[in-house]
Simulated assay, not measured.
Amino acid sequence: MTSSPTIGVLALQGAFREHKRLLQSLGAQVSEVRLPQQLEGLSGLILPGGESTTIGNLMVEYGLIQAIRDFHAAGGAIFGTCAGMILLARTIHGTPPQFGVQPSLNLMDITVQRNAFGRQVDSFRTSLDVAGFKTPFPAVFIRAPVIEAVSPSVEVLAEHQGQIVLARSGTLLAGSFHPELTGDARIHELFLTMSHRTEQAH
C-alpha cells in the first residue's frame, strides 16, 4: 500500500472514537463525519456501533442518508459494525414498534435481526474463524444483531454458532460485533485494503 486512504467515521452517536483511534494506529488519515459535505475526499466510511434508531434518525435529520448512498455509488467503501450493520441492510427485523420505522441506507443485500444475542447484560467475547485470517479473531458482541439471510452476491466471512456475523459485498463490509474494542486491527486492515482499491479506481 503506497499511501493510506482517508477514512471517515460517522460521529453522530456510538463508538466512533474507538474506530478513529484504531485506524490512526494503522497510519490512516481519519476524519469525523457529521454532515454531507464531510464525505468529500474520503475513500471509506465506518458506521459504528451504538443505537441504530438514534443514529438513523440523526442521519435523516442531517441529510446523510442520500449523501452516503451517493458516496457509495461513486465508489466509496463502507464498513458497518453492530448498529452500523443494521443501517446498511436491505431488510431489518426486530425493530420495537415504539421506535417507529428504522431508517436504513438499504445498500447491502442482507436481512438483519436486531439484538439477536439478547440485552446488554448478555454481552460476550468469543474467538471467530474469519475467512483469510490465519488465527481466530477476538470478537466482542454487545446487544449484537445477526445476518439472517444473504443474497448470492454477499460473501460470508465469519459465523458464530451457525449464524452469520461478518460478511462482504463488493465495497461493503458488515459485522455484528465490535472489532474496535479488541485491539486486533485485522478487520480494520481489511477495510483499509478495500478502501485503497476504491481510491485507486477513481
Rank of each mutant, 00 (worst) to 15 (best):
T2N: 14
P5G: 09
T6D: 11
T6Y: 06
Q13N: 01
A15T: 05
A15G: 08
K20G: 13
L22M: 15
Q24C: 09
Q24K: 14
Q24Y: 02
E32F: 01
P36M: 09
G44I: 04
G44H: 04
I46T: 02
G50D: 02
E51R: 03
T53G: 02
T54V: 13
E61W: 02
E61S: 13
G63W: 01
R69I: 01
D70M: 06
H72T: 07
A74C: 09
G75L: 09
A77V: 08
F79Y: 14
G80H: 02
H93M: 11
H93K: 13
G94D: 04
S104M: 07
T111E: 15
Q113D: 12
A116K: 04
A116D: 06
Q120F: 04
S123L: 09
S123V: 09
S127I: 01
L128Y: 11
V130M: 10
G132R: 08
F133E: 14
F133V: 01
R143V: 00
P145E: 05
V146I: 13
I147S: 12
A149L: 07
A158T: 04
A158C: 04
G162E: 08
I164W: 07
S169L: 00
S169Q: 15
S169F: 00
E180Q: 12
D184G: 07
E189S: 13
L190W: 06
S195C: 00
A201T: 02
A201F: 02
